[in-house]
Design a protein around this nucleic acid. Structure first.
Lengths: 194, 194
DNA sequence: AAAATTTATGAATCATTATTCAAATATAAT
DNA sequence: ATTATATTTGAATAATGATTCATAAATTTT
């Protein structure tokens, strides 16, 4: 029997990220993805069910990676809430810092994935729950201002980081990632910690 | 000569906002917009060049409204930077509070509009410039922490507010707008003011 | 009340692309 | 070397929905 050659599955997903980032989900042509991945159009459908599946897989990989990290972070008893928030912010920036296209897709296409209730967003919700736990822990031990609403905080920080990632991915020179990282940490520490 | 009947131009735009919010730009069908606006498909093209134009007009109206408000706010010499930031946040929430669909479109479709460099985004840039001026003013008179980067701050706050608006528009009960408003103000005051 | 002009209609057109699948190809097993 | 099986291809298909435009309707002007 014939054997699969190369790393087509991975090549295709990476090509998809590039094309989704550049043209947005609906503007992304399967033919372009095939071209960038150096495979034929038919091959795309050998490895992925359809275009939607391609986008879903991008997010699945991403949230899974984020979840695995936050899970081990949440468990650590040697770290205070302040340090955990610090690590959390680093986590985001580290994942995207060498892949601006992924950042662009993450920011702009999530609502496509979320729109379909069928799609498995397990890791996303798991991640969010863990993040909330950390904030709740901080409120309990009084290191976070208890007057603040947990959900509001969570989304405010995530939203702020998302837009900054988007801007950075478009023009890395305009606002360097290092500046973003430091500033976000400062605002969060002063803004939400007691 | 025959005279235009009713308020078709406005009806169409409002229908478009509803359909864009529910189905996202590419999922929005012109036929559905026509149906909601109680006009024929052909009539859409009497008032707007095409689908893209419909989306652009939504944003033009919005940014113009925001710009007019921030312009008069920036001029006021009786207000300190703290109060101005306060008004600014209120401005966003007031505009969207009785139109969650508009909030959804604002959050999710801006990148479509921005993608096309041709499109007139004058008011958007003007708004951003004014917002930056207010922050710079705050840094000058030492009411804002001078270690913070102006652009980063601007986008962080805007991004945080955007995602919160999106969440709220989807499920107003989950996170009430009043809670969002108060929390955002608290974080910003503690986080960026000296 | 007929002509002129503007506004409104929606079936037909047209372009675009995701997806399919019959054929070709490459490798392994016999 | 031949057969069997898995992989790859890309032209053809099929569905979708934005846009057009010939026709009709409403109002005003003469």
């Amino acid at each position: 029997m014939r054997v699969k050659e190369g790393t087509k599955e991975k090549d295709i997903l990476e090509a998809a990220i590039k094309v989704f980032a550049q043209h947005s989900y609906h503007g992304a042509k399967m033919s372009k993805i095939a071209e960038l991945a150096n495979v034929s159009i038919g091959t795309l459908y050998l490895y992925y069910v359809n275009k939607e599946d391609l986008l879903v897989k991008v997010f699945e990989n991403l949230w899974k990676k984020l979840y695995v990290e936050i899970e081990s972070l949440a468990m650590r008893e040697d770290l205070g809430v302040t340090e955990k928030l610090d690590y959390l912010i680093d986590l985001f920036f580290d994942i995207f810092s060498n892949n601006p296209d992924l950042a662009t897709v993450f920011v702009n296409e999530q609502h496509h994935v979320m729109r379909n209730a069928e799609v498995d967003v397990m890791y996303y919700h798991d991640f969010m729950a863990k993040a909330e736990l950390i904030i709740i822990e901080g409120i309990k031990n009084k290191s976070i201002n208890p007057n603040l609403n947990v959900k509001v905080l969570r989304f405010f920080i995530l939203g702020g980081i998302k837009l900054l990632l988007d801007i950075w991915a478009k023009e890395p020179k305009l606002v360097p990632l290092s500046a973003i990282r430091i500033n976000v940490k400062t605002v969060i520490k002063k803004g939400i910690l007691n």
